[in-house]
Each structure stands twice: as C-alpha cells, then as structure tokens.
C-alpha cells in the first residue's frame, strides 16, 4: 500500500509534472501565504479558502495526484481537530456572539478559529502533496538550489545542502526497506510493535532505532568513499547534468502565482480596514 502514501512522487507526464520545479516551489510559497492570511471577515475567508481548495482539486486531477493519501490525512487529523476545538472553546475570547451548552458560553468565533486552523492545515497538506507527487526529487533539489542561490553570496554552502538533500531523498526507500526488514526481524524475536505497556513500547522502538542508526551510519561512510572516488569535492565547481528548459507557460504561471502572492497580501492588509464581503453584499441592495 506504500504506493498510495501521501506525497510520494509518481512519475507521470502531465502538465503539472512538466511545470518547472522553481515555479512550483514559488507557487507553494505564495499559496501558503494566501492560506495563512486572514481577510477580515468570516465569509470572505471561507470564500478564499474555498477557491484555493477548488484550484487545488483541479491541479490534483490534472497532475494525477492520489486523493486517497489526502483523505487518509484528514482521517489522521480528527483527533487534532477535536483538540484544537476544545482548546479554542476553553480559552476566554474577546466576546461576540455565543450560544450556551449548559452554563458554558461557547463563542462562535472560537468555532471559526478552529475551522480556520483545520482548513489551513488541510490546504497546506494538499499543496505540499501536490508538489511532492508531481516533482521528482532531483528536480526539487535543483529548484531549491537555484532559488537559494542568493544565499551563496553570503557564503552559505547552498550546493552542499542541495547535495545533502538529494542524497537524503535518494536513501529514503533504502532506509524504509531497512526499517521493514528490521521490524520483521525483531518481530521474530517476539517484539510486538502494536501492543504492550509503555515500557515495552519504548524497548521495541529502541530495538528499531539503534540498528537503523548504525546501518545508516555505515551506509553514509561507504557513500562518502564512493563519492570521493568518483571525484566529488564539495568545494569544487561542478557542471549539472539536469538542465531545465524554461518555457513560456512557466513564465505565465510564475506571473500568475506572483499575482496571487501580491494580491493575497494586499487583500489581507485592506481586509483589516474594509469589510469587502459586506461591500459586495451592499452592491445588491
């Protein structure tokens, strides 16, 4: 079932996959900003979140991103939703409208706040899973390295970080396999990963973590030697095999997301002063 895990890269050739990784990363950032801003009034917030949600659904369909993974993420969020709700309800708020449960005042604003947080987290999950599902790890590191280039000017070793990231991504499947094999091996020694008291659970986790660490260390030692033998020097200049051809559509999408970025900030700032939703309704009076 691992193949349906959320955000796992699936090598199709859709327009979403073809979009330049740099554009997709910028899109991620601007959408995140748009999602985390408040726009002044409750209905307007929900309208904007709803629009972003619809846009993301379309992107998922185009990019053949699995809905199953996202659905599973919602399932996992249940517990957190209730927790956030309780937290918001119990914290005293400024006031406003409320209803009573027994003697307890429940403010509508605390319910809205809970919904905002849940919506934002959920949208964020969708955005990241679309990015990771449609962008190969190689392209992703390439994009990040490119976008972080300015940091090189203040002597941050961006290329080395990009290499570290690429290697980490490359070794995720290998370490996953290691983990699975270890779980089976320890299960054969009577370890029960699902049940048992806290103390036993800590022991079972230890029986996984320690061997996993030692094998990861061994692998990285081997890898470092192999890399050096193929001429890798973190300080030296290297050429890049993967080149990206920037296309007109990339430029258009880049502009689009920059507009979203600027627009959402403007809307949020102005939203603090004017109630756009009310103004909109007033038009029809």
């Amino acid at each position: 079932m691992r193949n349906f895990a959320m955000g796992r890269y699936r090598p199709y050739n859709t327009p979403m996959h073809r979009l330049d990784a740099r554009v997709k990363i910028i899109a991620l950032v601007s959408l995140m900003v748009a999602v985390f801003l408040g726009y002044g009034s409750v209905p307007l917030n929900f309208i904007i979140y709803g629009l972003i949600f619809l846009g993301l659904v379309v992107a998922m369909i185009i990019g053949k991103v699995s809905f199953l993974g996202v659905l599973r993420a919602i399932k996992a969020m249940w517990f957190m939703m209730i927790f956030i709700l309780l937290f918001n309800v119990l914290i005293p708020t400024k006031g406003g409208d409320y209803f009573l449960i027994g003697d307890f005042k429940v403010y509508y604003s605390s319910i809205y706040n809970t919904l905002y947080i849940v919506f934002r987290l959920f949208l964020m999950l969708m955005i990241t899973s679309i990015l990771t599902a449609t962008t190969s790890p190689m392209d992703m590191t390439f994009g990040l390295e490119f976008l972080l280039t300015p940091l090189k000017w203040i002597k941050v070793p961006v290329s080395s970080f990009a290499m570290i990231l690429a290697l980490a991504l490359r070794f995720i499947p290998t370490l996953t396999e290691d983990t699975e094999r270890l779980m089976r091996a320890q299960a054969s020694r009577g370890v029960d990963f699902k049940e048992g008291k806290l103390k036993e659970k800590i022991k079972s986790i230890t029986s996984l973590i320690i061997p996993l660490f030692s094998s990861a260390l061994m692998r990285s030692g081997d890898l470092a030697i192999a890399m050096e033998c193929r001429g890798y020097d973190p300080k030296a200049k290297r050429t890049k095999f993967r080149r990206k051809n920037w296309r007109i559509s990339d430029t258009l999408w880049l502009l689009f997301f920059l507009v979203i970025f600027g627009g959402s900030i403007a809307l949020a700032v102005l939203g603090g002063k004017y109630d756009f939703f009310q103004m909109f309704l007033d038009l029809f009076k």
């Binding site: 290691d178 094999r181 270890l182 089976r184 091996a185 320890q186 054969s188 020694r189 029986s207 061997p211 030692s214 094998s215």
Partner: peptide, 8 residues
Amino acid sequence: FQFPEYQL
C-alpha cells in the same frame, strides 16, 4: 534473516 548482525 539475511545479514542478521543488523538486528543487534
């Protein structure tokens, strides 16, 4: 299992 030394 194969390479059982890794489970120590």
